[in-house]
C-alpha cells in the first residue's frame, strides 16, 4: 500500500496534487472532471471582500508553451461567495482551500472572521501576489512592510490551514515567506504567475487593457522550479510548488527540489482530468521505484528529508 498522504497544517491531502486558484473554477466545475477520492484538492478562484468586475477582454493570450492572463480577480465578493458558491463545496470530499485576495489588513480580518462561521473549508490561501490589479503589476507582495503587516495578526483568527501565495516577480517574497513562517503560517504557495506582456503589432498597442499580464504554463516551469528550490532553503514549513506543471515527471522534480505538494493551473485548462491522471500515475511511479511514502521524496535533492 503506497502512502500518498501529505500533511499541510491541519489538512491531510490524499495526494499531493492540487488544482490551482483561478484554474479550478469554484470547485464543482473541476470535480465534474476529477475523482475527489483520488486527488489532493483544489484552491478556489480568488475571493475579494467586495465584488470585482474583472478586466476587459481580451483576458487571455496564448504564447509559446504558455499563457498570458489578465483576468483581474473577477468574483462576486465574499458575501456572494458564502451564499452561492460555498454551499456547493460542502459535499465535495477532498481538500478545499479558499483563496482570499485582500487589499488591506482590515479586509483579510473581515473575510476570515466571516468564513470561520462557515463549514466545508479546509484552509485559506492568502493571495497577495495577483499581477492583474495595477497597470505596473505591483501589489501588496511588492512591498515587504505592507506584506509583513498583513501576515502578522492572521494566525490568531483561525485554526484552519493557512497558506500564503507569493509572487516570483519580487525578491521580497523570500523575506515575506520567512516572516509568514514565524507568524505561524502552515505553508507557502510558490509561485504565482510571472509579469509579462504582449504587443498587438497591428494596432501598436498593448494586447491587454491593463498592459501587464501574468505568464503561466510549461514556459515558466524551470524558473518556478528554481524559485521553489530557493524558497525551500529559506523556510522549513511546507512549500506548495506551482508553475508549469503538466506531467508526473514535473511533479517529482518539484517534490525532489523541495515542494511538499504541487498545484496545477494552466495544464488543467487544457486537460481537465489531469489532477486525477497524475495522482494515479504518481502511485504507479512509487510502486515502480519502491517508494512507500510519497513524502519520502520531498527535498531529496539535498540528501536530506524535509
Amino acid at each position: 500500500m503506497i502512502d500518498q498522504k501529505i500533511k499541510i497544517g491541519q489538512t491531510v491531502l490524499k495526494s499531493p496534487i492540487i488544482g490551482a486558484s483561478g484554474c479550478s473554477g469554484w470547485g464543482p466545475e473541476l470535480i465534474e472532471y476529477n475523482k475527489q477520492d483520488i486527488i489532493g484538492g483544489f484552491v478556489t478562484k480568488s475571493v475579494t471582500l467586495n465584488e470585482k468586475i474583472g478586466n476587459d477582454s481580451p483576458r487571455i493570450k496564448e504564447v509559446s508553451s504558455g499563457l498570458l492572463n489578465s483576468i483581474g480577480l473577477e468574483n462576486g465578493g465574499l458575501d456572494y461567495f458564502i451564499e452561492n458558491k460555498l454551499p456547493l463545496l460542502k459535499d465535495i470530499d477532498c481538500a478545499k482551500f479558499i483563496n482570499l485576495a485582500p487589499f488591506t489588513n482590515e479586509e483579510i480580518h473581515i473575510m476570515i472572521n466571516k468564513l470561520e462561521k462557515e463549514t466545508g473549508i479546509d484552509g485559506y490561501e492568502i493571495n497577495i501576489s495577483c499581477p492583474n490589479i495595477r497597470k505596473d503589476g505591483f501589489n501588496i507582495n511588492s512591498n515587504v512592510k505592507k506584506s509583513v503587516n498583513l501576515v502578522k495578526d492572521i494566525r490568531k483568527l483561525t485554526k484552519r490551514t493557512l497558506m500564503l501565495k507569493l509572487s516570483p516577480a519580487f525578491n521580497e517574497s523570500f523575506e515575506i515567506a520567512s516572516i509568514a513562517e514565524k507568524e505561524g503560517f502552515d505553508g507557502i504557495t510558490f509561485t504565482n504567475t510571472y509579469l509579462g506582456t504582449a504587443v498587438n503589432i497591428d494596432t501598436g498597442k498593448f494586447v491587454f487593457k491593463n498592459k501587464v499580464a501574468g505568464l503561466s504554463g510549461p514556459a515558466i516551469k524551470p524558473i518556478s522550479l528554481w524559485n521553489v528550490y530557493k524558497m525551500a532553503n529559506t523556510v522549513k514549513i511546507p512549500i506548495i510548488g506551482v508553475g508549469g506543471i503538466r506531467t508526473i515527471e514535473d511533479v517529482i522534480e518539484f517534490m525532489m527540489i523541495g515542494a511538499s505538494a504541487v498545484q496545477i493551473g494552466t495544464a488543467l485548462l487544457v486537460e481537465p482530468t489531469i489532477l486525477t491522471d497524475i495522482s494515479i500515475k504518481l502511485k504507479e511511479y512509487c510502486k515502480e521505484n519502491h517508494i512507500e511514502k510519497i513524502r519520502d521524496i520531498i527535498s531529496t535533492i539535498n540528501g536530506e528529508e524535509k
Binding site: G22, C23, S24, G25, E29, L30, E32, Y33, K45, I53, G54, D56, S57, P58, R59, I60, K61, L67, N69, I71, E74, L268, L269, V270, P272
Partner: peptide
C-alpha cells in the same frame, strides 16, 4: 478567446451593457 471551455478560468468573458461579464 476560449481557454478551458468549462467555466474554470474566466478567460472567455464577454461584457454586457450594465458593465458585468
Amino acid at each position: 478567446i476560449i481557454a478551458c471551455g468549462l467555466g474554470l478560468c474566466g478567460g472567455c468573458a464577454i461584457k454586457y451593457d450594465d458593465g458585468s461579464f
